[in-house]
Design a protein around this nucleic acid. Sequence first.
DNA 1: GACGTTTCCGGAAACGTTGCCGATAGTTTT
DNA 2: AAAACTATCGGCAACGTTTCCGGAAACGTC
Lengths: 392, 392
Amino acid sequence: MVKCVKCSLADDVLKAGFVRGRQRFFCKSCEYHFTAERPAGVPSRKRHHATIADVARQVGVAPSTVSRALNGHSDISPVTRQAILDAARQLDYQPNLLAQSLKNRATNTIGVVIPDLERPFFATAVSGIQQVATEAGYRVMICQSKESYATEVSNVQALVASQVDGLLICHSRETENFDHMSSTACRDIPIVHFDRVYNQENVSRVMIDDWSGAFAVTEHLVLEGCRRIAILAGPASLLISQQRQAGYLGALRKHGLPVEEELIAHIDFRAESAVACLDAWLALPNPPDAIFSINYTNAFDLILALRSRGRRVPEDMAIAGFGDEFLASLIEPGLTTVDLHPYRIGQQAAHLFLEQVKLQERFEPRTCVVKSELIIRQSSLRGQGQGFQLAI
Amino acid sequence: MVKCVKCSLADDVLKAGFVRGRQRFFCKSCEYHFTAERPAGVPSRKRHHATIADVARQVGVAPSTVSRALNGHSDISPVTRQAILDAARQLDYQPNLLAQSLKNRATNTIGVVIPDLERPFFATAVSGIQQVATEAGYRVMICQSKESYATEVSNVQALVASQVDGLLICHSRETENFDHMSSTACRDIPIVHFDRVYNQENVSRVMIDDWSGAFAVTEHLVLEGCRRIAILAGPASLLISQQRQAGYLGALRKHGLPVEEELIAHIDFRAESAVACLDAWLALPNPPDAIFSINYTNAFDLILALRSRGRRVPEDMAIAGFGDEFLASLIEPGLTTVDLHPYRIGQQAAHLFLEQVKLQERFEPRTCVVKSELIIRQSSLRGQGQGFQLAI
DNA sequence: GACGTTTCCGGAAACGTTGCCGATAGTTTT
DNA sequence: AAAACTATCGGCAACGTTTCCGGAAACGTC
């Protein structure tokens, strides 16, 4: 017979239904409900790690005192403090950052969203972010959108739900709607856009000077003696295509060279497209003497294709690319290109975030432009021009 | 005169010292201490975001009911559930993962420590980790040790303090002491070592099959007709040097080729060292006809140096490298190399972690070896041998 | 109508930390 | 010696969530 857990009498105990598979009882005399014993609950209690309470117990003080000692507050005597520090070391106490963050309403973590970690540009940018963030005591959480809008949105949501203190983001190619970046969606945390930028006022941004880079490359080709300079651009809808093409046109204009429509091509960045484009140019009655590829991989494609077609680089055709310092230095001939300084871009983005945290509501969103740098190598050196007297 | 906050009488109120800069008082009649008003405390209350309590208030139910509704538990009527879901949407409620993690004792986050994100091998491995982790509902937190032991240790500590559910690590070159990976230091969370491996029993590891890769490369060179195959290895102390050299020796032995000490070199991976080594070999009375570089960058160095010295690759000297698929395919001539499949390594490491989480204490630590793959390109194709009938 | 059942919800205690504030004992001033 | 002060420390309420478990209404059944 079942006994009441309160009065220990079995007389007035009635069955009172089932809850979650267990029989419940009701004691009429004490008017008390209770449930049958749990069927040998497996404890499987995860190993308990020392908490502030454990340290407090060991020393014989209150948890709040331990907290004060550990955080170097005042209101504590040197002896107690030392005793607490000793006990903490002995118990191998490690503060639970989760609880700290929950209490302090700050995680000391910043979220980073990039299209693809495997692309050297982004890996380097993230590295720059991490260096600055780490020095400032922030951890970094990285997500890849893989150029998918849906993934980007879910990345941002996950980071915000994780209560990151800030968001550094380079949008995917697909991204055209920015509702997921709204202040309400992002809980008013500081946001910095970099590289591919959210084109709207009142946001912090770190950008590449596409125009100047393209201008410098083109001017360099002109000064090397090239007179028919082709440009291999990406889809016309892309901002980078437009701006780099504008820089190209600017240089042509400055040096009084005509703009020939047949030398301006927009492709989808695929190698086959680049090669097809090259062949079309080579078949012209008056082919170009230089090609500026706004994408570095296409520049490699061009060099390889030219070689297999028996053309020499740079003698028969000068080639210049854009971005990716490392690869450009390895290939033969070395590729003239523009170093976009992705590491600095990352650093700058992190600095903008830190500044915003520091200044709070006094912070004014602003746009930073990271200077790019023309790196001249073999692929463009025709040596027929006036040399290198050019300013970027 | 100051009035007591309890009895509202000013008569028996005495000053009672200062606490943290504020005057304190003591009311004799009620025997009550109190402190002067806080000097216009700046609220600066951060924007409050909807919590479970807010949703509960709006619907008129208890927080626990909201939690049940949101987590799809039973014990809730369809109408209440719908009302709660509607209210949650209306208030733009987002669960606070911090609080959830604290309560659930699980963060759904895994920590990754790698030497350098900018190295394509690691970037790709991380990408593989992230793909598997994301699909399993885990977030990823990445740290770089930059090949520094001290940084690695602090990375591990930071991740553990952040309560990550697991740790995937590739050790720095400096790391020889593994105390920071002990079960106590890491709070018994699952750990998987990958690539550079913790050489001890009873840990989970994902490794490259250095031996087989090196064997395959060397055998390929033999079958291409090379008879004096040199190996450009790294520091003899490095495990990868030893194992790749062992694979090289194994292939020579299998095909009855003599091992010539003068064709085995250990360098420090710097380009100048590689070139110096090449020149020494070229100056031999009987120079090698092939070089296997266990490091892909050195392979590039060799190709460039050979070209500048008027030697043809592969006609005068066959070259083969190890690792980094992408670069090897871009260069001219294409570099024969071993694809280490870093993406798979990352995936495998993440899978090992997931398995350990799933099986709990029934999990047996084990070592996985990810098959590498010989990729044959122009740089080794002498065509004087028996062709490609080789098995890796 | 007494007993049993199902359904649904609220209260409360955690998780680990921090910070406010009250409360002492001991010391100095008046 | 009362009054004022200093130096320490404990208690308690948060932070936002989850999970027990008790309570009660509504319904069924002998």
